[in-house]
Amino acid sequence: MVLEPSFQGAVLAAPARSSHRSPVSEAPATRRVLIAIALLFLGFFLFLPLVAVFVEALRGGVGTYLRAISEPDALSAMKLTLLVAAIAVPANIVFGIAAAWAIAKFEFKGKAFLITLIDLPFSVSPVISGLVYILLFGTHGVLGPLVESAGIKIVFALPGIVLATIFVTFPFVARELIPLMQEQGTGDEEAALSLGASGFKTFLLVTLPNVKWALLYGVLLCNARAMGEFGAVSVVSGHIRGVTNTMPLHVEILYNEYAFQAAFAVASLLALLALLTLALKSLLEWRFADGIAAVRGH
């Protein structure tokens, strides 16, 4: 816990010259200058870009805005984005739970290495995350002839987009669950099992309630990235308008066609999603700080 600097100062400081200036904090003027610099930096780098999205989106009036987000290509992009997230997020939830169960509830060799491997996708450039699937399933890819003869289209189609999205959002759920479940140990599960609960029942009624906020936290971050991913999806999508365009790709196409207002209109929906994600994430951090892992930052 951080002590209130001014309060602490009032107790410690000698009532001589600098009446109640704490020896373990900065002078009020210094404090104000530091706060001002910090806020100015955030204003230029975070706040202004966010405001710009909404102002540019509404520049041509509400009518134009509504038309831009309700035209058929925009709607099909929204549908595709929702569909991709609806497949990728549950897939990574199942994986996250399985990985956390194996890693947190058991002691085995190579565990640290496995955790490193799970985090690997975060250190790969999004473009490379898309490229690897082209090298694997593309026409000249390692498995390309095989999937082609089976009549399956992966690259430049929905499966490729889903795979690339799963790749870039791979660690989100697992890395929220693993530290928390390691911290919680195995005592609760052992008690349930010794009282006669089945393994599945133990998981459902003991483990899952213990980690529900962390799970929700991971899902939130996973979903935000899944819906907003650009680089990886851009490489595998092939940019077929109305067919393989997700919302971020649609923003790019509109922007490159100089349809700036429409680009910002679609972008504003994604910005709203980001704000909603931040709000829910902060709510979880404030209300259920104990229920989510102490580790923050991604």
Partner: peptide, 13 residues
């Protein structure tokens, strides 16, 4: 809370 905006905002936006 706002510090995390770059994590949440899609890069294209």
């Amino acid at each position: 809370a706002f510090i995390d905006l770059p994590f949440a905002l899609p890069t294209a936006v």
